[in-house]
Lab assay of single mutants.
Amino acid sequence: ITGDVSAANKDAIRKQMDAAASKGDVETYRKLKAKLKGIR
Rank of each mutant, 00 (worst) to 15 (best):
K23R: 14
I1N: 10
A21V: 07
T28L: 15
K37M: 12
G24T: 01
I1T: 09
A34Q: 11
I1A: 10
R14H: 06
A19I: 15
K35W: 12
I39M: 11
I13K: 02
E27K: 06
A20S: 01
S6V: 12
D25V: 00
K10N: 05
I39H: 07
K10F: 14
S6M: 13
G38E: 14
L32E: 02
A19F: 07
A21I: 15
A8K: 11
L36A: 01
G38T: 10
A20H: 01
S22Q: 13
K37W: 03
T2S: 10
K33D: 05
T2E: 11
T28C: 12
A19D: 12
K35H: 06
K37E: 15
A20C: 00
T28R: 04
G38K: 13
Q16Y: 03
V5W: 09
K23N: 11
A21C: 12
A12L: 11
A19L: 13
S22V: 09
Y29N: 02
D18Q: 14
D11R: 09
A8I: 10
A21W: 15
A7K: 11
Y29E: 03
A19M: 09
D11V: 06
I1G: 11
G24L: 04
M17N: 02
T2N: 12
A21D: 03
K10C: 15
A12G: 05
A7T: 10
D18E: 14
A21E: 05
A20Y: 01
G3A: 10
K31A: 06
K15N: 05
G3H: 10
R30F: 07
Y29G: 01
I13F: 01
A12F: 08
D11T: 05
Y29I: 04
A12C: 00
S22I: 10
A7G: 08
N9I: 15
Q16G: 04
S22K: 14
A7I: 10
R30N: 11
M17V: 01
S22D: 06
D4I: 08
K15R: 07
K35V: 14
Q16R: 04
G38Q: 13
L32H: 01
Q16H: 04
K35L: 15
N9F: 15
D4Q: 10
A7N: 08
K15A: 12
R40L: 15
S6H: 09
K33Y: 11
V5K: 11
R40M: 15
K35T: 09
D4E: 09
K10L: 14
T2M: 09
T2Y: 14
L32I: 02
K35P: 03
S22W: 05
R14N: 04
R14L: 13
T2F: 10
G24E: 03
K35G: 02
G38N: 11
R30P: 01
S6G: 09
K23G: 04
